[in-house]
Design a protein around this nucleic acid. Structure first.
Lengths: 235, 235
DNA sequence: TCTAAGTGTGACCCGAAGTAACGCTAACCA
DNA sequence: TGGTTAGCGTTACTTCGGGTCACACTTAGA
């Protein structure tokens, strides 16, 4: 029996369309509440504490999240969104290499110092709850930096296999050094720490670039990969 | 009333002395079993799985450990013992700076590659179980390296506040870069990774040393701090 | 024969995550 | 106006892993 098929329904049931986007809205609200609960109670926050903060019964969380792991993943996504925005001048290079490095290091140290509980949640506890690797903040940030490195190494004919270890390593470096500093803040000021980290990062980046024939000036605007390719071709 | 006091009991009850050292023996056995259970079941090993491996009822564990956190601490201590032994040529400097750096990097990468579950347990899960910071393997290793850096920086009149961030940062660097490599082992060989890590570590160490007036030769035996102090005094 | 210290067994408790049924509310539709 | 749709709060319940405890047993020593 032939049924006439419409590409779209003529008119939809208002009882259904009334709730359009509700799931997404609720998930955002619960993530907002979760971030506050983590800040208030620490990274070992319970689902009960998150629900209390959201003003709903705990069982309601399971209507919008497929378990605590799903919620942890959503929290990590939110943090990634924020960090990616803050580091836009690094992904879409603007300014000098030194300015970009300084922004990246400061942003990382700031996140660790000013959002300690949230940072620890997404880096450790959230991961333990089972969030997939692609939600991991460290991996996201390191991946972005690695992509930038690879692009420049490739444009100057260098060894692109250095991109990943350098990027991941640098993020790990800043992370570990800052963790230590947060546990012993009297050893030096935050500015002194940042200064050292920036210097070391520059040292490593400039040396890696030099090895691929790319002489970077720390205080001159970073050339675009296109400019580099043109420059590399004329040798 | 005066009581005659003996410095030691004349003769001890054999029923008590029979069990001397038993608690320590049992703890070592249970840690041995735990390491095997972690290797077999992964870092999220349960106390039931550890007890099964030890061949005892689960409740027996609580007679020798003050909870899972205490067991995790004992496991971390065991790993620290082994790593500290393997890195003795670094703590008690023998050989050239390059040889020492290479040994440290290789040992770290080997631990991560060949004892993945144990490494992940002591770095993450074990920590989460509540083990005190001083049992943390990373802190232990980084602390050793920092002490070595501080000693040399001090002997050459340099800025000793660079010791901690450099040491902790370098361990974090190798850790993060190797974690990435383990997830994508086809990007380069382990040898290529190690080579890069050693080069970067040398770069950073030599630059930090140079800034404090200490010119290191990567392939000459590392001078002792005493030799450095004598050398520094004659300037 | 009694005692000391360790042992295995089994029962039980607790907290946290997760599931499900039920009745309610508000808006929409025929 | 009554029925329907979708989300909501309440309550009860299950599962799991960590942790505690009492009891009987074993072995050696006094």
């Amino acid at each position: 029996m032939t049924v006439k098929r419409r590409s779209v329904p003529a008119r939809q049931d208002g009882r259904a369309t009334r709730w359009a986007g509700q799931r997404e809205r609720r998930r955002r609200e619960f993530v907002d509440a979760a971030l506050k609960a983590i800040t208030e109670h620490g990274p070992h926050v319970s689902t009960q504490q998150i629900a209390d903060r959201a003003g709903v019964p705990r069982t309601r969380l399971y209507r919008h999240f497929n378990g605590k792991a799903d919620l942890a993943a959503a929290i990590a996504e939110r943090v990634i969104e924020q960090v990616v925005v803050e580091l836009d001048p690094v992904w879409n290079p603007r300014g000098t290499p030194m300015e970009m490095i300084e922004l990246a290091v400061r942003t990382h140290v700031a996140w660790m110092a000013e959002h300690a509980a949230i940072y620890q949640y997404v880096i450790n506890i959230g991961g333990e709850a089972g969030a997939s690797a692609y939600h991991d903040v460290k991996v996201a940030v390191s991946g972005h930096i690695a992509a930038l490195f690879r692009e420049y190494l490739h444009a100057s004919g260098g060894d692109t296999t250095a991109a990943e270890p350098a990027a991941y390593g640098l993020v790990g470096f800043v992370d570990a050094a800052t963790t230590r500093w947060l546990e012993h803040p009297d050893e030096q000021t935050r500015e002194e720490l940042v200064r050292k980290l920036v210097d070391w990062a520059w040292l490593l980046i400039s040396d890696t670039a030099a090895k691929s024939g790319l002489e970077l000036d720390p205080h001159q605007r970073l050339p675009t990969p296109k400019e580099l390719r043109a420059q590399h071709a004329t040798r």
